[in-house]
Simulated scan of single mutants.
Amino acid sequence: MNKEEQGKLVKACKKNDRNAMEKIYNSFMPRMLAVSLRYCNNRSDAEDIVQEAFIKVFKNIKKYKDKGTLGSWIERIVVNCAIDHWHQRKKRVLIDNSELIEENETSELNEIEQQELAKQLSTEKLRTLINDLPEQYRYVLNLYAIEGYSHKEIGKILKIKESTSRSNYTRARKKLLENMRALGIYKNNC
């Protein structure tokens, strides 16, 4: 769907046109479900988050100012709904590992390693590996590495310390690499 089509559909949605809403929903729902699945292990919860997000999209469509893309605006709402969902069902306290992280805990992949890893790792397999991470690690990893939030912003969103966000991110990466090594996807020469 091109930008002009999106503009027409948004205008129609602002006038409560159900057909336009349905077209926007059908166009963006698969992508938004994929976004939601980055935050949930459970497809049913992910679908609920997407439904809640689209309700908010259509309730707030009049606030959409055509800055950026419609898809990005909807995605931000989905991420916020996923975070709200997490807060609502969170039963345990996030691990507060604000102590200093040892240097050997942070291993960066160089460009050649990244390219090799990309060849071996399908999107679905990566999603599965990320979903296998502990919940607090998964949320921080998604918010930082995929959504582009800073650790300070993540701290505010998840109601944790900035240092906890940093350590959870580092541990998420470490755990992800360990899981990849265990599956033979990523081999380290160390």
Rank of each mutant, 00 (worst) to 15 (best):
K23N: 02
T69A: 00
E5A: 08
R127T: 15
N19Y: 03
N97C: 07
Y25Q: 03
N42V: 08
N19I: 08
F28M: 05
K56S: 09
Y169E: 06
A172P: 04
A118L: 11
S27A: 15
N142F: 04
R166K: 14
E116K: 11
C190G: 14
E116C: 10
M32A: 05
S72T: 15
T128N: 14
A53S: 13
Q88S: 15
E47H: 08
Q114F: 07
P30Y: 02
R76F: 04
N179H: 07
K156T: 12
A53K: 02
S122Y: 03
E124A: 14
Y186S: 09
K187F: 07
A20Y: 00
L94A: 15
V35N: 01
R38E: 10
K3Q: 08
S98A: 10
E153F: 06
H87N: 07
S165D: 02
R166N: 07
Y186V: 09
G7E: 10
P30C: 03
I130P: 08
N41D: 11
E52M: 12
E113K: 07
E147R: 07
I55G: 10
E75W: 09
V57A: 08
A145I: 06
L70P: 02
R173I: 14
D96I: 08
L158P: 00
S163M: 10
K62R: 13
S167M: 02
L100N: 14
A20C: 04
S27K: 15
E52C: 13
I112H: 10
T106H: 13
N131I: 05
Q115N: 09
L176P: 02
D45L: 10
V10L: 01
L94Q: 11
E75G: 12
I55S: 10
S107G: 13
E116I: 10
R31G: 05
S27H: 15
I157M: 15
S122N: 07
V10H: 01
I101M: 11
I185H: 02
D96G: 04
E103H: 08
I77L: 04
Y149K: 13
S72G: 12
S44P: 04
L9F: 03
E22F: 03
L143N: 02
N42T: 09
G184E: 08
K125W: 01
A12S: 09
E178K: 15
N60R: 04
E108G: 12
R166S: 07
I95E: 06
K156H: 11
A82H: 02
M180W: 00
E147H: 05
K152F: 09
L126K: 07
D132L: 14
E153H: 06
L129H: 06
C190V: 15
H151P: 03
V50T: 05
E47V: 09
Y139T: 01
T128V: 14
E108C: 14
E22R: 12
T164A: 03
K152Q: 11
D66E: 15
S98P: 04
V93T: 10
R38K: 15
Y25T: 04
E116A: 13
S107Y: 14
A34T: 13
M180P: 01
L133H: 03
I77P: 02
K159D: 05
R138K: 09
N26W: 00
N189M: 09
N189W: 05
S150W: 08
T164G: 00
Y64T: 07
V10F: 02
T123D: 12
G7K: 06
N188R: 15
N104V: 13
N16S: 13
K23W: 00
L70D: 01
Y139I: 03
E113P: 00
G148W: 04
S107W: 10
